[in-house]
């Protein structure tokens, strides 16, 4: 095989800048997915911690209101954060779609018989779970942020928006399922992202994971707690006593 066969026959190699070459490479796109995924994990944990203020023992409606109003007070910072989150989701999804297309093209004809030896449910459900989660995020923002289709939405009264919103049995089911899918996504993603970036030290059991399991369980339980508690009637009627300035 002579060296003149480089690059592969029939494939033009256009001159490209560093960023372009990075984005076009399979490793580069995975790095983008890992970094945006880690950003997503940080957001999801913060969001979950915010939600859990629903369980404040005294004046929970006031606690949730103060929290929501506090976020609004960030002003331009809030919009920068929102823009960053949207950009992360877009990058994560576009990279995933492009990598999936490339991976499918890499094996056009399937095996007559193929056994899976180590791949987890988490790994194998990344694509379908990811698509469902994107759909859920769109629904969730319409439902609980903008109040579209919500039975009794009141701006800046998240306690009662959640309490009343989860009197719809199907919403409870949907949010709990989404929390489970998110946990499954992170069971693989929280582990794989660090490995993709080469940040894990070598291990005798490279497929073993502890922190990812902890994150997956924490996030699933943390997000499922509010709809389940609402369905069980844990949240008593309460009002916002003092509207935050």
């Amino acid at each position: 095989m002579s060296v003149s066969t480089l690059p592969a026959a029939g494939v033009a190699r256009p001159p490209a800048g560093r960023v372009r070459r990075f984005w076009d490479s399979s490793v580069g796109k995975k790095v983008v997915m890992a970094v945006t995924g880690i950003g997503g994990i940080a957001f999801v944990i913060a969001h979950m911690a915010g939600n859990l203020q629903m369980f404040t023992p005294t004046a929970p409606a006031q606690a949730m209101h103060t929290y929501a109003a506090g976020l609004r007070k960030l002003g331009p910072l809030l919009w920068i954060a929102r823009g960053g989150l949207v950009a992360m989701v877009v990058l994560h999804v576009v990279a995933a779609l492009q990598l999936t297309a490339r991976n499918r093209a890499a094996r056009p004809s399937a095996y007559g018989r193929k056994e899976h030896h180590t791949s987890t449910w988490g790994a194998r459900s990344m694509r379908v779970g990811g698509v469902v989660l994107v759909g859920f995020i769109v629904f969730h923002i319409l439902d609980m942020t903008l109040g579209v289709g919500h039975p009794q939405f009141v701006h800046l009264d998240p306690y009662n928006n959640l309490r009343l919103g989860f009197q719809r049995w199907w919403a409870v089911g949907l949010y709990v399922v989404a929390a489970g899918l998110l946990g499954l996504h992170l069971f693989h993603g929280a582990w794989a992202s660090w490995r993709t970036l080469g940040l894990r030290r070598p291990s005798d059991r490279p497929l073993h994971r502890n922190i990812a399991i902890a994150i997956a369980v924490l996030v699933t339980l943390g997000f499922a707690a509010v709809p389940v508690a609402a369905a069980l009637g844990v949240f008593a009627p309460d009002v916002v006593q003092e509207v935050a300035p």
Binding site: S26, K29, K30, L99, R102, A106, A123, H188, A192, P206
Partner: peptide, 10 residues
């Protein structure tokens, strides 16, 4: 035209 790594571990 190889695919990319998704860390299935196979």
């Amino acid at each position: 035209h190889f695919g990319g790594c998704t860390l299935f571990g196979e």
